[in-house]
């Protein structure tokens, strides 16, 4: 549920982050994370047969938290957070499933989203992708972010370009190279 205070809050946090307040970004991230997680759990209950893709999750989080009447600038910023939060939700869920399989962990609400059928192999692969992305981000923040925005945030080429303030050609080139690199890193 969206409430007026919440809207205001999110908008304020977005503004503060634009001003350079990293704490605001953290607070925002937490709000979005909780929401993405709730959306994932809800959609799972509502339609066990259909699975939401990572990008569906990010988009719904955006609509739910901010509505569709959002300042363009805020929207670009929000995408970055939503993509990151979605990635975090998926990775956490995969990690927890794997640790359960190995005998640890308390019972919990199953969160089988974004993968048609979560299998240990898929979960492990997701964790490896996450790790590789983190390694890439430490050296090459922009290319890592392109991957995150496209695959976890569901942004189109032009949206990614606008969000990162680069040309679409750069997005294309970054995406291709980063994707190829990720593939080789996963195989290694």
């Amino acid at each position: 549920m969206r409430d007026a205070a919440g809207d205001h809050d999110i908008t304020r946090l977005l503004a503060a982050w634009r001003e350079g307040d990293e704490q605001a970004r953290e607070a925002l991230m937490q709000r979005v994370y909780v929401n993405v997680r709730a959306i994932a759990a809800q959609s799972l209950r509502a339609m066990p047969a259909a699975t939401l893709s990572a990008t569906d999750l990010a988009h719904e989080a955006l609509l739910r938290l901010l509505g569709s009447e959002l300042d363009w600038n805020d929207r670009q910023h929000f995408y970055r957070v939503a993509a990151q939060a979605t990635r975090q939700v998926l990775v956490d869920a995969a990690r927890r499933r794997l640790s359960d399989k190995r005998g640890g962990g308390a019972p919990h609400v199953e969160l089988d989203v974004a993968q048609a059928l979560p299998t240990p192999e898929r979960d492990e692969q997701l964790l490896r992708i996450d790790e590789a992305l983190r390694a890439l981000a430490s050296d090459d923040a922009r290319r890592a972010q392109v991957i995150e925005l496209v695959y976890f945030g569901g942004l189109s080429r032009s949206e990614v370009a606008a969000t990162l303030a680069v040309s679409e050609g750069t997005v294309d080139r970054d995406l291709r190279l980063a994707r190829a690199w990720l593939k080789t890193a996963l195989r290694a």
């Binding site: 990572a54 990008t55 898929r122 692969q125 695959y151 080139r173 994707r179 190829a180 690199w181």
Partner: peptide
């Protein structure tokens, strides 16, 4: 890298895991 790129259109591990075909974004 070039080999991975050529194969990525056929088998994109990210798209497979995250549910969106990457064809629309592939370049």
């Amino acid at each position: 890298l070039l080999a991975a790129d050529a194969a990525a259109e056929l088998d994109d591990p990210l798209a497979r895991l995250l549910g969106r075909g990457a064809a629309s974004l592939a370049g």
